[in-house]
């Protein structure tokens, strides 16, 4: 459980985070999105107690960051941006160090380290110095460190950055497996990832929330999401138009020798059955008939377009 209220962080005249308020509950996987410099990392650094807010309050599992920073740090597993780890240590030594600092000892520590190694699949490199590891392994060592003490809150800054598709899949699966009884916040630039694992997406731009909802809700912000596309041959043009004319906001364009009709969604549903029946009634056999899925990329671009470089202090 994370509760953030009116959070502000100023760096000199620049407000990196500007009156941000949101809550994340147990069981939620929050995807934290935004262009570079939007304030994602800064917010995460404040939640984890690395940076002190200029104003506003943060509570994690009931502990206030300002008055009980250690309580907050104990409840959180944190993967900082770039997954920093001591380069001269081996993953095993590093994880043992984390276990000791986290107050685990004896059998508990051994079990926790073993579990983290298994979950992140880093057994193969467990005795190599961290600075000799590939980017993917380094990232996974960082994740292992974050989940070591089975924290109720997990905050990960770009957990899949630098991983290959297989590793990304594994990390997403790991996050999903842990999601049920944890509060998870991840930041990412990869929007498919949000659709794949996040129960909720929060888009921020210039330190402010510009969108907050489930990935599905955000997709409904695009006009094309759940629309139906019908391709018909040129000669069926008029008949098809007649058959589909009952649909609101029908659009048509010519593409590579076929006519493509677009029927927007109706009441948040894809009207594919209705379209198919209308075509059948009109005696038209389409070349193709499919439902379009909107892209979070488009939502993201629409919401965060603007000169990211010219932020004012406001």
């Amino acid at each position: 459980m994370i509760e953030i209220e009116h959070l502000v962080k100023r760096f000199g005249p620049l407000a990196a985070v500007d009156d941000l308020s949101f809550r994340v509950s147990t069981g939620e996987v929050l995807g934290f999105l935004g262009p570079n410099g939007a304030g994602k990392s800064t917010t995460m650094k404040m939640i984890t107690g690395f940076l002190t807010p200029s104003s506003g309050s943060i509570r994690v599992c009931g502990h206030d960051v300002a008055t009980d920073p250690l309580g907050v740090k104990e409840s959180i597993g944190y993967l900082p941006e770039g997954a920093p780890a001591y380069p001269d240590m081996t993953p095993l030594g590093f994880l043992r160090f984390i276990a000791q600092v986290r107050g685990l000892s004896g059998v508990k520590a051994v079990l926790a380290v073993d579990r983290a190694i298994e979950q992140t699949d880093i057994l193969a490199v467990i005795d190599q110095p961290i600075d000799t590891l590939s980017k993917g392994f380094k990232r996974r060592v960082g994740i292992a460190q974050a989940i070591l003490h089975d924290p109720p809150v997990l905050i990960m800054d770009e957990p899949t950055d630098g991983l290959d598709p297989n590793q990304k899949f594994e990390v997403r699966r790991l996050i999903q497996a842990m999601a049920a009884n944890k509060t998870i916040v991840i930041s990412t630039h990869i929007l498919e990832e949000v659709e794949a694992i996040c129960t909720r997406a929060l888009i921020i731009d210039r330190g402010r929330v510009v969108a907050d909802g489930t990935p599905q809700e955000l997709l409904l912000r695009t006009s094309r999401h759940l629309g139906v596309v019908v391709d018909v041959a040129l000669e069926d043009r008029v008949a098809a138009h007649a058959a589909l004319t009952a649909f609101k906001d029908l659009a048509a364009e010519e593409l590579n020798g076929v006519i493509q009709f677009f029927v927007p969604r109706h009441l948040d549903q894809a009207p594919i059955v209705a379209v198919a029946e209308a075509l059948k009634a009109g005696g038209i056999s389409p070349r193709a008939l499919r439902v379009v899925t909107g892209r979070l990329d488009d939502v993201f671009r629409t919401l965060t377009r603007g000169e990211a470089g010219t932020r004012s202090a406001a």
Partner: peptide
């Protein structure tokens, strides 16, 4: 330099 300060200071250590 290496950014491990962020790790160290977000661990539950006074």
């Amino acid at each position: 330099r290496s950014g491990t300060i962020e790790l160290l200071l977000t661990l539950p250590i006074p």
